[in-house]
Write a protein that binds this DNA or RNA. Sequence first.
DNA 1: ACCTGAACACCGTTCAAGT
DNA 2: ACCTGAACACCGTTCAAGT
Lengths: 206, 206
Amino acid sequence: MTEGTRDPRPIAPVSKRKAAAAARATRRLGVEDWTTAALGVLLRKGVAAITISTLCDELGVTKGSFYWHFDGIDQLLETTAQSWCADHNDAARGFHDLEELPPQQRLARMGELLTGERVWQVELAVRDWARTNAKVAEAVKALDQRIFHTLSDTLVDMGFSTEQAQMRAGLMCFAGIGFVHGNQNLPVPSEEQRREFFRFITSKQS
Amino acid sequence: MTEGTRDPRPIAPVSKRKAAAAARATRRLGVEDWTTAALGVLLRKGVAAITISTLCDELGVTKGSFYWHFDGIDQLLETTAQSWCADHNDAARGFHDLEELPPQQRLARMGELLTGERVWQVELAVRDWARTNAKVAEAVKALDQRIFHTLSDTLVDMGFSTEQAQMRAGLMCFAGIGFVHGNQNLPVPSEEQRREFFRFITSKQS
DNA sequence: ACCTGAACACCGTTCAAGT
DNA sequence: ACCTGAACACCGTTCAAGT
């Protein structure tokens, strides 16, 4: 998020590491510098690429420095997870506002919020991460449930029975998660198909 | 699959490795021994746990042995992938038989095939693996598309238009994939809910 | 308070030498 | 043909020593 805060006085770089060290100048690192660096690598190259050596090169320090701030790579991951969860909850707060919209518009708005291009990237990375980090898994789970309940409540508002609402909300949630994980494998639905989908999910049966 | 083929003459084990070496006796290893070992670790502990050292301990040999059979860990993974794909295609062949069933039963049968307990485990492991191995990704994609088309064709047989059939088949596929990845996060649908789901997906709109 | 530098264990990789 | 054993590079981890 706040990436370009470090002023880049241009100095002829002898090596990447020397250059980074020079850019940093006298300023010393804090925990936050490591977590934002880790988050950056996560989104660019995935969890597996988050390596102490890589981060050290990127920040222009040696590995001993890392171990002054953290007990080990697990703690770094955990701390980064917490930091991400905080930001993430802020972002999810956009959901609160829309609980006052009329049901139909609420559904449409949620559809938009959850199908943005960048969202996929982050979602995939984070859900991958969740497989090896309980804290992240918990955050993802909370978000999933929140979306499920918002959808379900909306459908109830539209006149569906609790059972029908839950079945359809569950269907939408699973389809959304599946879309994030498998959209390379199947034809991506067109705009018209998405509209038809919403028409179907909110239709009464014959 | 074929696991208990090695006769386990019980010998007092000095160490795990010595024990494994003794069990193997004079028999020397082939490529297959390595791939089945890798597959075993994959299902038990995930891709990340497939390490040359681990496999060597398990098979009772040194790492030099590994490098006589394979150029590196990537090739091991690739070969294991091919071996898995072969087995997997055999398993997927169960789909051919059911293209002669009446549409309704076909849907129900596919539902059963795709929601077995063990299937999830394997699916999750394999889809995780697919993220770092193109060959596996390709096999998974082929399977997804096959399921999609079978579903879509079935719905057409039931009297739906091509557009409706594709929309609903896509919905089912994505929901299935999402269910594999996210069934810990949301309430698992009951038997009754699953039936209601199939009723819904095959219903005409009002 | 924050970092360097050297050390060690572990894993992937290579290769000459063994049977 | 298949494997051992020793070597090396790389990464995670530790810690005494520097500023």
